[in-house]
């Protein structure tokens, strides 16, 4: 048992880390966590692959029909939206799972108690999780969004209908799609922190993002307009992936505005999650 006594590798290591180091430690720890489970690679891999396939199929379809389209129909085609809308949809589906699991998997395995024992500053643990999830999501969604765009435009090249990044609104749509998917991960993380249950958090996120906007269609028009403007999910995808001025839904905020509304919901959920985490017993 002599080996226990030495603590050999600890010698010379600063015994009490300064405050800033606590957050850095939390971030490094969360990075290790997210990188050391297969579900991260599996879900991000599925997201990138499925969204590229979607872009290819959609844009190839548009190219195939191009010859038979009237000038008016051609004018309504949004080549950017054709290529990135798949990522916006598949990415949200996937990122809800990844974001929720980031925290609910810790509750279901009991790991949360260990995490909060080694680092009892719960806000720091949670902040580390959110930052790392955001970084990993951005690292996956930005390349994915640009890949989708270029793959899609490649399929449209034969029609000369393809878009370029320098055209108005195109870079915005490609960027906003990556941000939308990233925000969805954080949205689900907040829900996961509040609900502490994988199935519950995923169901709540899908319900809020995909079901409620559909149910809102039953509302009378002025209310529906308000609902579309202020609810997360649903029409948001159409609004932010559009570059064609004719494609905008006029009563909704312009793309950055809708994204800001969504960011507001996400921030509110993250704060709610932080409050629950700090107040409730682990």
């Amino acid at each position: 048992m002599a080996a226990v006594t030495t603590g050999g590798a600890l010698r010379g290591v600063r015994p009490v880390p300064p405050r800033r180091a606590v957050l850095i430690g939390a971030i490094r720890s969360e990075l290790t966590k997210i990188r050391s489970v297969r579900s991260t690679y599996a879900s991000l891999g599925v997201m990138v692959l499925a969204s590229i396939i979607w872009a290819a199929i959609f844009c190839a379809g548009t190219a195939a029909h191009w010859a038979h389209m009237s000038a008016q129909v051609r004018g309504g085609v949004d080549p950017t939206q054709n290529s990135v809308q798949g990522l916006a949809l598949v990415g949200q589906l996937v990122m809800v799972v990844l974001g929720a699991l980031t925290i609910t998997a810790e509750y279901s395995t009991g790991m949360m108690r260990t995490s909060l024992t080694v680092l009892p500053r719960r806000g720091v643990v949670y902040g580390g999780k959110a930052l790392v999830l955001a970084a990993v999501a951005l690292a996956a969604t930005f390349p994915a969004s640009f890949l989708c765009f270029f793959v899609g435009q490649g399929f449209l090249a034969s029609t000369h209908a393809g878009a370029t990044l320098s055209q108005p609104g195109v870079l915005r749509a490609v960027t906003a799609t990556a941000l939308l998917v990233t925000l969805t991960g954080l949205f689900a993380l907040g829900l996961g922190a509040v609900l502490r249950n994988t199935a519950g958090a995923i169901a709540a996120a899908y319900g809020t993002l995909f079901l409620i906007p559909e149910l809102a269609r039953a509302l009378p028009t002025p209310w529906l307009n308000d609902a579309q403007r202020w609810l997360p999910g649903g029409y948001l995808v159409a609004q932010i992936t559009t570059t064609n001025p004719g494609g905008f839904i006029p009563h909704m905020f312009f793309p950055w505005g809708e994204l800001a509304v969504y960011a507001g919901y996400t921030a509110a959920l993250l704060v709610a999650g932080a409050i629950v985490l700090r107040r409730r017993d682990a």
Binding site: A9, S36, V37, T109, L119, V125
Partner: peptide
Amino acid sequence: LDAKAMHGGRSARSHLLCLAQTNGIPASR
């Protein structure tokens, strides 16, 4: 507290490493 309280998909080393990193404990430990 609970021996089974770890993510089953994570290796023992990764599990211990993510704990160590929170307190600035080196991987060699």
